[in-house]
Structure formats: structure tokens, C-alpha cells
């Protein structure tokens, strides 16, 4: 289990994490969501003992990372796939990493095989595509057969095939009972891979739950088409709903649900040609959750406030 306990981290005057606390339960895939610049990578670096927080601490199975000896046997991480000396071969990079924690050379060959890099193992990493580098990074993370794995934005910059491959890898690793924390700024990606998500924004904890829980908690709109939108809108507003013009001459209704809108139409004797509950998209939910917590809101977004 990973515990982030009241962590505050600032770089100079820039506050990256404010009193951030959460727990990552063992044995499941936890998505770590937040807009760009929300502090996901900083959190990962704090967990890995690379950056020291000014307050609070992060522990893995009760110990801070820097208290671990031979940590690759307990925690594997892919923080930045391109962080490899470009002049070294994939195999030699793995061997150097393995040697540091007393891991055998044959294990290097095994993980190369697992990520499908055996054929290019002797090529210099500088010649690798991003997808190949991601595979190498995952191989490094798996070297010590750790029970805890951290992946920072592993999907970024991958082609569809690479994305599918990484999803499969996550499922395989999760099925083996490992604890996986994977960060992303894409909620839709987390809906496909994560059992539950933790959402942060501007370095602060926002919420956690399964993707379904987060989506159903979000407001749902109703799309309605009728012979007299103007009169229907009046009735809806009178009943406490709000309306706005929807696509193709429809009416988008917020606050009221589809059943209420239908009853209002019946009472007013307005014939409906369409009545559709619009489930909020994952991205809408995510935007809603983090809207107040994004550092850089576009001018269009600002106008709505």
C-alpha cells in the first residue's frame, strides 16, 4: 500500500503539492488523474524519494522510499521513458539497473522478452522510438518483480497499438495481484484501465472513487425536441429547470430529469418528438471536477464563470 500523508512540496515560490493525502490500496489498478501541471509527476517523485517534500511524507508498505534497501524488488517505476543514456544499448541499461540491486542477467533477458525488445536489445537507446522507450521503461520497472508499480503518463505519445499493448500489460500485472498507480490526464483512458481513480488538481486532493461513481454523481442533462420549444422552455423554467438551445433545434434541459420534463410536456399538451437523457461524458465530469483547480483556464472557460 502506498500512503501519501499530508505532503506539501514547493519549488521556490511555486507550490506543487498542498497538504496532499491519499492511499493507494494494494492489489488493484488505481488511476491518478489531474490536469497537466496538477502535481501528478511531483507526487510520483515524492513517492520515489527523488524529491523531498517540505512537509508530510510518502510511504510504501510503511517505509519511505529512501529507507528501502534494494528497492527494485519492492517498487518498480516508469517515470520518464526517455531518461536513458542515448548511447547505451537497451540490454546494457537493464544490466546496469539490475546489477545495482543484485538482479541476475538472465532476469534482464526475461523482461526484454516480456516487453518484446529482445530483437533490438543491442541497439543504442538513442535510436529507439517513444514506444520502444516506453517498453524499455516497463522492462526496468519489472526487473525486480516488484509488488508495487508506478507509471507516470505511460500512454503519452503512444500510437494506438502501443496504447493497447500497455493496457494489456496493466491487466496482466493487475491479475497477478500487484498494486499499480498509473497517472493520466485523460479520464477516458482511466475508465478503461483503472479499478478506481484519485483526482487531484493544483496539488490538492479533489475526490476518489470508481469511474462509475464519479460519472453518476455528475449532473445529467436532458435533450428534448418538441412542436413548441418556447412554451415548453417556459414551463421548464417555471418548474425550476434551466434551458439552453441544444443541437439541431433541440432544447437542452439541466436540473430536471427526463421524467419530469415528460410530465411537464403532457400537462402543457406539447407533443414531443425526442426526449433523451444525456449522460455526462467522462471528460465533462473531469472538467467539472477540476475546473476550479486548473492553473490555466482558457478565456472561453473564464467567460462562463
Amino acid at each position: 500500500m502506498i500512503v501519501v500523508d499530508h505532503v506539501t512540496k514547493h519549488y521556490g515560490h511555486t507550490v506543487a503539492l498542498r497538504d496532499l493525502s491519499f492511499e493507494v490500496p494494494a492489489g488493484v489498478i488505481t488511476g491518478f488523474l489531474g490536469p497537466n501541471g496538477s502535481g501528478k509527476s511531483t507526487t510520483m517523485r515524492v513517492i520515489m524519494g527523488l524529491d523531498a517534500p517540505q512537509q508530510g511524507r510518502a510511504t510504501i508498505n510503511g517505509k519511505t522510499y529512501r529507507e528501502l534497501s534494494s528497492p527494485l524488488h519492492q517498487v518498480g517505476a516508469l517515470l520518464d521513458a526517455k531518461s536513458v543514456h542515448p548511447g547505451r544499448s537497451a540490454r546494457n541499461h537493464l544490466r546496469a539497473m539490475a546489477a545495482s540491486n543484485g538482479i541476475s542477467r538472465s532476469r534482464c533477458d526475461d523482461v526484454l522478452e516480456f516487453v518484446g525488445l529482445t530483437a533490438v536489445a543491442n541497439r543504442r537507446v538513442g535510436e529507439f522510438s517513444l514506444g520502444m522507450s516506453q517498453r524499455l521503461g516497463i522492462a526496468v520497472a519489472l526487473l525486480g518483480d516488484p509488488a508495487v508499480l508506478l507509471f507516470d503518463e505511460p500512454i503519452n505519445g503512444l500510437d494506438p497499438e502501443g496504447i493497447r499493448w500497455i493496457r494489456d500489460v496493466f491487466r496482466t500485472l493487475a491479475a497477478e495481484g500487484r498494486t499499480i498507480l498509473v497517472s493520466s490526464h485523460l479520464m477516458s483512458e482511466m475508465a478503461l484501465t483503472a479499478d478506481q481513480v484519485i483526482v487531484i488538481g493544483r496539488g490538492s486532493f479533489i475526490t476518489r472513487g470508481t469511474v462509475d461513481e464519479l460519472t453518476s454523481a455528475a449532473a445529467r442533462d436532458v435533450l428534448v425536441r418538441s412542436q413548441d420549444n418556447a412554451r415548453l422552455a417556459e414551463a421548464i423554467n417555471a418548474a425550476g429547470g434551466t434551458t439552453s438551445p441544444g443541437p439541431g433545434g433541440s432544447l437542452q434541459v439541466a436540473v430536471l430529469d427526463a421524467a419530469t420534463v415528460g410530465q411537464l410536456a403532457l400537462r402543457e399538451s406539447i407533443a414531443l418528438s425526442e426526449l433523451t437523457p444525456v449522460r455526462a461524458s467522462l471528460e465533462d465530469v473531469f472538467m467539472e471536477l477540476t475546473a476550479s483547480a486548473t492553473d490555466y483556464t482558457s478565456s472561453a472557460g473564464a467567460a462562463n464563470v
Binding site: 517523485r45 527523488l50 528501502l68 517515470l79 543514456h85 541499461h93 539497473m97
Partner: peptide, 18 residues
């Protein structure tokens, strides 16, 4: 400095936190 230039210093220090 090659480790700082490539970023692999983080992998090194993650493997050997002491």
C-alpha cells in the same frame, strides 16, 4: 553529467536511494 543530461540519474537514485 551524462546522467543529468539524459535524466537517467533518477533511475540511478531510484535503484540506489542511499
Amino acid at each position: 553529467t551524462s546522467e543529468y543530461a539524459s535524466g537517467s540519474i533518477r533511475a540511478t537514485l531510484a535503484a540506489i536511494p542511499q
